[in-house]
Design a protein around this nucleic acid. Sequence first.
DNA 1: GCCGTTTTCGGCCCGACTGTTTTCAGTCG
Length: 571
Amino acid sequence: MGDNARVASVLEEVADLLELKEDSFFQVRAYRRAAREISALTGDIRDLYVRGHLDQVPGVGKAIRDKVIEVLRTGELQYLKDLQNEFPAGLLQVMQVPDIGPKTAGRLYKELRVTNLQDLRAAAEQHRIRMLKGFGERTEYNILKGIRYLESRQGRMLLGYAYPRGKALEEHMRERGFDLVSLGGSLRRMKETIGDIDILVGSSEAERAMDTFVSYPLTAEVLLRGETKTSIRSQDGVQVDMRVVAPSSFGAALQYFTGSKEHNVKVRTLANELGYKVNEYGVFRSSDGEKVAGETEEDVYDALGMQWVPPEMREDRGEVELARKGQVPRAVTLSDICGDLHTHSEASDGVDTVEAMAAAAEALGYEYLAITDHSRSLTVGNGLSAERLLESMEHVRRVNEDRPGIHLLIGTEVEIDERGGLDYPPKLLEDLDIVVAAVHSRFKMAPEDMTERLVTAVSNENVNVLAHPTGRIIGEREGYSFDMERVMQAAKDNGVAMEVNAFPERLDLSDLHCAMARERGVAISINSDAHNVRQLDHMRYGVATAKRGWVPPEMVLNALPWEALRKHLDI
DNA sequence: GCCGTTTTCGGCCCGACTGTTTTCAGTCG
């Protein structure tokens, strides 16, 4: 874990524990905000500390600054230890149970000595909870259900898992006559992981919309049903929340329902200052309650003197201020992408032929496609020997001649050995159109050695792209440790693009690393790493990740049209 | 605990739904 993540997690835990104290609501918010700002920094917080610039971090004032310094110096925080002594650690688990927040957890602790999930289950089973004032039978039932849910769920799902499911539900509603439908929440913002799927419908037939929603064939359980809001759990365990509003409020509701929460808080605070009130039904003048916007999102932002902000950028990372000035930067979108520079065929560990991949890429409207099969050392990926690579080059050339509709690039995803050397001789690499270099072995080297390894690799004159630079697999393993700043600098110096690998498990670079690359002027290449034709569609997740890092199309290698790319790669 | 083209003090987004209540607090997003 880096310094930023460590400091943020300490502050986050302080906030969690402070919630259990009464009258500390705004303190909790302050700690959470500071934690969020710090984890979203694109530089190292230790650098800011050393230069005495901690105060520049929004949300960090005197008190939190001192605590940050203590964590950076000692790795610990006495204040946190004191809080930990005050409340049992298990109470934080208790608060994870749906419908149990700090107030309820605090009362259960004080009145029933509930200190962890086991205690909570026992108290509910022995009907001790219903004895408390304000609690009843139903609450006990819901608590037991909540505990089961907590134990069964495995955290957040991948964007690539949620997206097709959300789209299918959207389609389900559309096919039944609901035209105003949109995904919302973190799925619309295309975060790398998603908690619940949110869907918004604009319709005057709320009742029929609810019926249509719960009749979705994959519905396993209806969790909640009201007049405007219904939640289901689908058979694959995904919770889906649907909200219905009148068509005239669709834009305001979409803005509200998309979030992020932090973005909305800032927008609404700004609205207050301007004399407006914003809710999911519209923008209202505070003076007379007159509605001034609501039908479209554009109207809502416009009424507040703001530019419309793409959902991927609504994370309160400065976009609200820029939107006010009409200076939201243009970030890359799927339509900017001209081709895919990292894909596999059946020659290595892909399943489809070069012909099929080329046809699929052409169908996507791409101008070009690079076939980059694995190199010889990656035996688990059926890596190509030098001889097989030569054969493959011949094959790709022939397909290229047969398909005038698309330009095929002959490439490789070449292994980077532990000293930064490459898996094929330079002469062979020179003959390829594109070289994508990647680490697939020896992940646990000392950080200094890994940095050297990657710097050496990107300094190799034959390398064009550094594939999945951190090697992380979301939810399974952290990326390898190295100095990202140095590797980015070396990539920039050598004209090498850093990849945003669009595979849902990778999304590597992450949105934050994309922001870091953008600030430092390092080129990005967004690639699907497809191992079959369907996976070419993963491109959208990579593009969204780059967009979340505000990467402009000019910085994206494969947003170059074919002639410009050819010139750049000197082929 | 932070913050200020009104403020160094007094604010800090807003509404739906639930369970347990006769009017609302807590939780959630």
